[in-house]
């Protein structure tokens, strides 16, 4: 559980809407994320969580509303520009470079302008060093350094490692804000319980996080604030306990109460 409460807003979403034809995938959603927060976004399938993320990270252009980062308007900027500013995301459908070894997957973000500018990884940006840095990051994420896992083709890795690889891409960019799109889904209970401390560790390093999740129990271990969406609209927002006891949230999640 995060303890930083400096209340310095870094990401502000104001009445954001995204319509596909007549469908309001996201409708008038506002959210403020403070530095050091771990904000959970919950909601049933099709409630617009991923669309919201796509709008924040520039993969979709919002129909209405604004997104600002450190007070700077970033609405509708190109995805690579937003990533370059320090907002980095994982994909729900994992997108590794299947034909490259795991560690080479991280050489790509390490070659990005942001990594060169912000740097900070041991060894810095020179050619050759990136491989070492990549393995360092993978080790931090639980790829055993001396095993062959970091050197295996990404296409042959199991889901748990691919999820970590997605996080690794974010870490390589030295992010300020990581947006995770369902990192826990598709993982076994033991895999999740090894990921949770990792998320806490990253948050402890000062990285702000937004997490879209279906696995509420695990999410509530790490999140300090939660927003619930339903049919693209914001239902409620607040401390995890408040949100979960909100009647509309209970209604939306009825039938899956064993999760709590």
């Amino acid at each position: 559980m995060s303890t930083h409460h400096t209340k310095e807003p870094i990401l502000e979403i104001r009445s954001l809407s995204k319509h596909f034809g007549g469908v309001k995938a996201v409708d008038d959603v506002s959210l403020t994320v403070n530095r050091g927060d771990v904000v959970g976004i919950i909601g049933p399938n099709g409630s617009g969580k991923t669309t919201l993320i796509n709008c924040i990270t520039g993969f979709l252009k919002p129909t209405k509303g604004t997104v600002s980062f450190h007070g700077k308007d970033i609405t509708g900027k190109k995805p690579h520009k937003i990533a370059d500013m320090g907002i980095n995301r994982t994909f729900q459908i994992m997108r590794p470079y299947f034909s490259m070894p795991a560690y080479k997957n991280l050489v790509i973000p390490l070659s990005s302008p942001r990594a060169k500018r912000v740097g900070g990884w041991r060894g810095g940006g020179k050619h050759g060093d990136r491989d070492t840095v990549a393995v360092d990051i993978l080790e931090e994420l639980g790829f055993e350094r001396d095993s062959r896992v970091p050197y295996k083709m990404a296409g042959t890795l199991p889901t748990g490692y691919l999820k970590r690889l997605e996080l690794g891409r974010c870490l390589a960019l030295r992010p300020e804000l990581i947006i995770c799109d369902e990192v826990f889904s598709g993982l076994s209970a033991s895999e999740i319980s090894s990921l949770v401390p990792l998320i806490e560790k990253l948050n402890g390093q000062g990285i702000t996080m937004i997490m879209i999740e279906h696995r509420l129990a695990e999410l509530f271990r790490v999140a300090n604030r939660v927003m619930a969406l339903s049919y693209g609209e914001k239902v409620t927002e607040g401390e995890p306990d408040e949100v979960i006891n909100h009647p509309k949230v209970r209604e939306a999640y009825l039938g899956s109460e064993e999760d709590f």
Binding site: T57, F59, K78, P79, H80, A83, D84, N88, R89, F91, R95, P96, Y97, F98, S99, M100, K104, V107, I108, P109, L110, S111, S112, P113, R114, A115, H127, R130, R169, A172, L173
Partner: peptide
């Protein structure tokens, strides 16, 4: 590394974008 980035575009351009490139 530069060539790797180019090959990454072929493999998966969304990830390249998400990497700030």
């Amino acid at each position: 590394d530069g060539g790797l980035v180019i090959r990454a575009v072929k493999d998966n351009d969304q990830s390249v974008r998400a990497s700030g490139i």
